[in-house]
Design a binder for these strands. Structure first.
Length: 475
RNA sequence: GGCGCUGUAGCCAAGUGGUAAGGCAGAGGUCUGCAAAACCUCCACCACCGGUUCAAGUCCGGUCAGCGCCUCCA
């Protein structure tokens, strides 16, 4: 708990256990959630690239939890269920699958284990019982609270001292707690509360923080390596996780990583502020890889400012990279054999720069800069004349393995145009016909007709470029 | 009020004390029927004021501005 950048040494050589606080599935994910998911996905991919076997656990919070800390506050899932006239679990599943499809679009690797809070009630109750047995928790009126006063370490992650904290919350709940800062491990279910389970303290439901302790310890074991999440969860959520785990006698996460927030007009994007754009909306308007590029082009610990202008920049920047890759792969089949030693050296240097950047706290902006360096070198070389196949392959490898495998910006293998896979042959054939027709116009110097054709294609989002080697198109 | 973070060109964004990565946009040029792409060239007194140092965007103090957490939030 040094609150600074430290050297990473895993518990078990060659293996890393990671836990990431996942979504509460009661509404669609927005761009801010994507920043977190992409950040930790890249960290996971980078660790894999450096040879670690990673077990990546991220939870699904499908217990509602309260909108605020008062007893009469409605559970978020229940509120949503009422609004949409669905069963609470129907709400959870609806938004869980929605989340999964968003993450797939963004090329996020699937978790190794994706446990649900409602599937681990037993484990949570067991942990609470351990805490009571050790004198760090107490039952009160059907609920159970963590006794903050009994655990001097509380506050060590976020650097807070108990006495600095504002006196908390509502009158009615304060009477149940020994100290206003005590947090709920188990809550008594009021009549009408649909999500409810039997427990030694009566019918109720688990507190918000306990699920992450129970599930991370269950699947990653004591003293697991990395725990991640949004900076806004540092306090109280992560602080509570640490306290309740360690007070129960279990060594908890050894490294904590927090991603910073995504802002819009300088303010945090959040559900409660209502200033969010859902991923669903963005995915309809933009190439998912452009969204990913935007998120990866700022450091995970930095704030990412999101705006239309930032998006435009990301779109252009991403295109520059992907076009260079396509150009290399286009040249590859007809490239002369052999290598260009000077270029090979540059490629190796860019590769090293990329890897060094990741080794230093996953500096993705710096890593991308290395990719741009490579791009400039390769474009310049291909502009000058044919480049040897060995050299082209070396460059291609960097794009696909690092840009693709680690940053997740390209697929691991070669792709063609962005047309849907099953329609690609048809589209290609049609485009060939159209371009041939346009070439005929051009050869006959009927430029008006040729330009008319190009205009028409532009309107449907197809760009045509005339190159030395003939016309090219892209979507 | 408590804890903490940030202020780098029109925009986005790195930066380990030695005189500012990268991208977008913009300007000029090469190529081209035109356009686009690509290539070449250009484009920052690092919020302000003090201090430490041979040397500070980078360390220390202060000022101003913005933001986050302390209540659900990635």
């Amino acid at each position: 708990m040094q609150r600074q950048k430290v050297r990473f040494v895993p518990t078990t050589a060659g293996r890393v256990g990671m836990y990431l606080c996942g979504p509460t599935v009661y509404s669609d994910a927005h761009l801010g959630h994507a920043k977190k998911e992409v950040a930790f996905d890249v960290i996971r991919r980078a660790l894999m690239h450096f040879g670690y076997v990673v077990r990546y656990v991220t939870n699904v919070t499908d217990v509602g939890h309260l909108q605020n800390d008062s007893d009469d506050g409605e559970d978020k899932l229940l509120a949503r269920a009422r609004l949409e006239q669905l069963e609470p679990m129907e709400v959870a599943d609806k938004y869980f699958w929605s989340f999964v499809s968003d993450m797939d679009a963004l090329n996020i690797l699937k978790p190794s284990i994706n446990p649900r809070a409602t599937g681990h009630i037993t484990e949570q109750i067991a942990l609470i019982e351990e805490l009571i047995a050790r004198g760090h928790a107490y039952a009160s009126n059907g609920s159970v609270y963590f006794d903050v006063r009994s655990w001097p370490d509380y506050g060590k992650l976020s650097g807070r001292k108990l006495d600095d904290q504002a006196e908390g919350t509502r009158e009615d709940i304060r009477t149940e707690k020994r100290d206003p800062r005590d947090f709920a491990l188990w809550k008594r279910a009021e009549a009408g509360h649909i999500m409810r389970w039997e427990s030694p303290w009566g019918v109720g439901f688990p507190g918000w923080h306990i699920e992450c302790s129970a599930m991370s310890l269950k699947y990653l074991g004591e003293g697991f390596d990395i725990h991640g999440g949004g900076l806004d969860l540092q306090f109280p959520h992560h602080e509570a996780e640490i306290a309740q785990s360690e007070a129960a006698g279990h060594a908890f996460a050894r490294y904590w990583m927090h991603n910073n927030m995504l802002t819009i007009n300088g303010e945090k994007m959040s559900k409660s502020k209502g200033n969010f754009t859902t991923l669903k909306d963005l995915l309809m308007q933009h190439d998912p890889m452009v969204i990913r590029y935007l998120l990866v082009s700022s450091h995970y610990r930095s704030i990412t400012e999101f705006s239309d202008a930032a998006f435009e920049g990301a779109r252009s920047g991403y295109r520059r990279l992907s076009e260079a890759l396509h150009e290399i792969e286009r040249h590859l089949p007809t490239a002369p054999s052999g290598n260009n030693a000077a270029l090979d050296a540059n490629i190796a240097a860019h590769r090293k720069a990329f890897e060094d950047a990741l080794r230093d706290d996953f500096n993705t902006p710096k890593a991308i800069a290395a990719l741009f360096g490579l791009t400039t070198d390769m474009n310049a070389a291909m502009n000058r004349g044919p480049v040897g196949a060995g050299t082209l392959n070396a460059a291609r490898e960097v794009y696909r393995t690092l840009g693709g495998g680690v940053l997740g910006l390209f697929s691991a293998s070669s792709g063609t145009h962005s047309a849907q896979a099953d329609e690609a042959p048809v589209v290609d054939a049609l485009m060939e016909l159209v371009l041939q027709a346009r070439q005929n116009y051009r050869l006959n110097k009927q430029y008006a007709q040729a330009d008319e054709l190009r205009q028409t294609l532009t309107r449907v989002g197809v760009t045509v470029e005339d190159t030395k080697d003939g016309p090219r198109w892209r979507k």
